[in-house]
Simulated assay, not measured.
Amino acid sequence: MVDRLANSEANSKRIGVVEGCFGAAGQPLAIPGRVLIGEGILTKLCRKKPKLRQFFLFNDILVYGNIVIQKKKYNKQHIIPLESVTIDTAPDNGEYDLRNGWLIKTPTKSFTVFAATATEKSEWMNHIGKCVGDLLQKSGKAPVGEHAAVWVPDSEASICMRCQKAKFTAVNRRHHCRKCGFVVCGPCSEKRHLLPSQSSRPVRVCDFCYGMLTAERLKPRRSRTSDIDL
Rank of each mutant, 00 (worst) to 15 (best):
L36E: 00
I37K: 01
I37R: 00
G38L: 05
E39D: 10
E39V: 04
G40D: 07
T43Q: 13
T43G: 10
K44S: 12
L45D: 02
C46S: 13
R47V: 08
R47T: 08
K49L: 01
P50Y: 10
K51G: 08
R53I: 00
F55C: 09
F55Y: 13
F55K: 13
F56M: 01
N59Y: 03
L62K: 09
L62N: 10
L62Y: 10
Y64Q: 05
G65V: 02
N66G: 01
V68G: 00
Q70H: 05
K71W: 13
K73S: 13
K73C: 15
K73L: 14
K73D: 06
K73W: 06
Y74E: 03
Y74M: 03
N75W: 02
N75L: 03
Q77N: 07
H78L: 01
I79K: 15
I79V: 15
I80H: 13
I80S: 10
I80K: 12
P81D: 11
L82P: 07
L82S: 10
E83V: 14
V85K: 06
A90R: 02
P91I: 11
P91W: 03
D92G: 06
E95M: 05
E95H: 15
Y96A: 07
Y96N: 10
Y96L: 03
L98N: 04
L98D: 04
R99K: 14
N100V: 02
G101V: 04
I104R: 07
I104Y: 07
K109M: 06
S110E: 06
S110R: 08
S110P: 09
S110Y: 06
S110T: 07
F111A: 03
T112Y: 01
V113E: 00
F114P: 04
F114T: 07
A115P: 08
A116C: 07
A116E: 15
T117A: 12
A118T: 08
K121C: 05
K121V: 03
K121H: 08
E123V: 15
W124Y: 09
W124N: 05
W124K: 06
M125S: 09
M125T: 10
N126Y: 04
H127P: 00
H127F: 05
H127G: 00
K130N: 11
K130Q: 08
D134N: 15
L135R: 12
L136A: 07
Q137I: 02
K138P: 00
K138T: 05
G140D: 06
G140A: 04
K141C: 04
P143H: 14
E146H: 13
